[in-house]
Write a protein that binds this DNA or RNA. Structure first.
Lengths: 182, 182
DNA sequence: CCTACCGATCGGTAGG
DNA sequence: CCTACCGATCGGTAGG
């Protein structure tokens, strides 16, 4: 297992997802990637600097290779929604949400990265809905993401994935109702 | 300001809500309530033991004095939903969600308390819907809570409360559609 | 990329 | 209810 930059970022992501910003330690990350802690600091200037890397990688993975909305916006929407739901189902929690709750004004760079991540994701979703002529695409995108994120609560507290499945199914139905309005 | 047990619990709640389980320190709590840290340990045996106290107080406050569902289930439902939404609007985040993401198997008592809290709240909501003859009350209750919780993401990242308002309004509409089914 | 260290802070306790 | 302390761990750095 080579210790690439990308490897460090994905391992940092797993730690942030599981333990949050405070709970993830640079020592844990070092052990995980097979380095000494000091060596991490030759790649990343600080713990905080990992957050933008983690989130931009996540955004990239979430939207890469998505069907062109101009060609088939329904397919693009369903693929994106199901991809997000699948990640939550596999990982049990959302890194972004854990970081959103975990970063404070003490780490402004991380805080800004979290805001930008969710804003970009929402905008990506809204753009697809806009092609489909869906009413108030920004609101529908935000609410859809909120429903998916909120469903992770039940996965964490009780292992129940049915709320996530309903959220995914309901979101996909947006793309199977009548064309044009609503 | 007297340093009552209840005072300590509500201050602990504010710290947990803002900083999460790891991020909230017993020293901060002690300073906040005007005691030395060691003195906290004469009231509570551990940091972990504060979690059940915080959540049972929160559950109590959330459901106390609610209209009797048998008398007017629509009013009971709307009051409960709006009460939850109001708390999120005022406090900007949900203690329960922050704790759900923040506690691990390293603090099993806290973890169990979080699960019980959300299960009890969902059951309370479902019981009201059951009186109203709403279809699949457990699922509707879980999804409603998920939508409200998820909306806090947008409050945190961008200050946008419109998603929370839509969640609250949509939930309340459950109680204004036709009696009986759905 | 390492060893070795820094000051700060953590949850918790001894002892009065 | 306090002072004073415990060992552990934190993010980060010096110096090679």
């Amino acid at each position: 297992m080579k210790t690439t930059l990308r490897n460090i970022v994905t391992d940092a992501r797993e730690l942030f997802r599981e333990h949050g910003y405070d709970g993830a330690s640079m020592q844990d990350l070092a052990t995980r990637v097979g380095l000494k802690k000091a060596s991490l600091y030759t790649r990343f200037p600080s713990k905080e600097s990992l957050v933008p890397e983690v989130l931009s990688l996540t955004l990239e993975e979430t939207v890469e290779g998505l069907p062109d909305p101009q060609e088939d916006w329904r397919l693009a929407w369903q693929t994106l929604v199901r991809r997000i739901a699948k990640t939550f189902e596999t990982r049990k929690r959302c890194v972004g949400l854990h970081l959103a709750y975990g970063v404070t004004s003490a780490t402004p760079v991380a805080q800004a990265a979290v805001s930008q991540f969710f804003d970009a994701l929402r905008e990506k979703m809204a753009r697809i809905l806009r092609v489909g002529g869906i009413h108030d695409p920004d609101a529908v995108a935000a609410d859809t993401l909120a429903q998916l994120e909120g469903a992770t609560l039940w996965i964490i507290t009780s292992g129940d994935m049915t709320s996530l499945h309903r959220a995914s199914a309901n979101a996909c139905q947006i793309a199977t109702r009548s064309e044009g309005k609503r």
